[in-house]
Simulated scan of single mutants.
Amino acid sequence: MQARPAITAAILAGGAGTRLGGRDKGLEPLAGVPLVAHVVAAVRGVDALLIVANRNHDAYSRYARTIADATVERRGPLAGIAAACAACDTPWLLTLPVDCPDPPADLADRLLHEALTHLAAAVVVHDGASRQPLFALYRRELAASAAAAASAQQGVWAWQDAIGARELDFADRGQQFLNLNTPQDFVDHAARSRRG
């Protein structure tokens, strides 16, 4: 039986936090713990972990190896994906955003199974309502393609279409892709967690 190929997970934490007054979303407390800590604890089925962040590297490096986008100016999450692909030491890269504290435990396994079954270089989550472009699995060889698309200011969705990424239905886990953007989102999530 062939060994399962290794996966590196990259948590994308490079956002500007505009709806949080410019504060770094990944370091905002959720139930008394930085949001990034929830994401790190939730990631399963991977062999290595990276965080892509453009500020507060010392704080993030407490949780995992931390890298920055290759570009000085902000070019959005695709620049983070390109940087993570370039830094990836495994055949596959799983990406997920720092603002989603409860990603499915089987996220990596299901995406990898889809990729291997269909010989796909990229697979992206569809939550039953729409594509979730930051939850995706890529072959690391896509680093140059991602970097070129980011330099051209292409969005993640458009780049995924251009490389023929497959969508995988996660409608059974749709609620687990909810992200936290505002202070009220943090309060509401903490309240739901206490009830649940």
Rank of each mutant, 00 (worst) to 15 (best):
Q2R: 12
A3S: 15
R4F: 03
A6Y: 00
I7W: 10
I7Y: 09
A10T: 05
L12I: 15
L12S: 09
G14H: 12
G14E: 15
A16P: 04
A16K: 15
G17D: 04
T18L: 13
R19A: 14
R19I: 02
R19L: 14
R19V: 04
L20F: 04
R23M: 01
R23F: 00
R23L: 08
R23D: 07
G26R: 05
P29V: 03
A31I: 02
G32A: 02
L35M: 11
L35G: 05
H38I: 05
V40C: 12
V43P: 08
D47V: 01
D47I: 00
L49G: 01
L50T: 06
V52I: 12
V52T: 03
A53D: 03
A53H: 03
A53K: 11
N54P: 04
N54K: 07
D58H: 12
A59I: 01
S61W: 01
A64C: 08
A64D: 04
D69V: 10
T71S: 14
E73W: 03
R74A: 15
R75N: 10
P77I: 11
P77F: 06
P77R: 10
L78D: 01
G80L: 10
G80K: 09
I81T: 08
I81K: 05
A84Y: 09
A86T: 11
D89I: 00
T90N: 02
T90S: 11
T90A: 12
T90Q: 09
P91W: 07
W92N: 05
W92G: 02
L94W: 10
C100T: 15
C100D: 07
P103T: 13
A105R: 15
R110Y: 13
R110E: 13
R110K: 13
L111P: 10
L112G: 07
L112Y: 10
H113Y: 13
E114C: 14
A122I: 03
A122H: 05
V124M: 11
H126K: 00
H126E: 07
P133F: 04
P133C: 08
P133K: 10
A136G: 11
L137T: 03
L137P: 06
R139L: 12
L142G: 02
A143F: 03
S145I: 00
A146C: 13
A152D: 11
A152I: 00
G155M: 04
G155K: 03
V156A: 10
V156C: 11
W157A: 12
W157L: 13
G164R: 10
A165N: 01
A165M: 04
E167K: 03
D169R: 04
D169C: 01
F170W: 08
A171N: 00
R173K: 12
G174D: 08
Q175P: 00
Q176D: 15
N179V: 05
N179A: 13
L180I: 05
Q184H: 12
F186S: 06
F186E: 04
D188L: 13
A191V: 07
S193E: 14
G196Y: 06
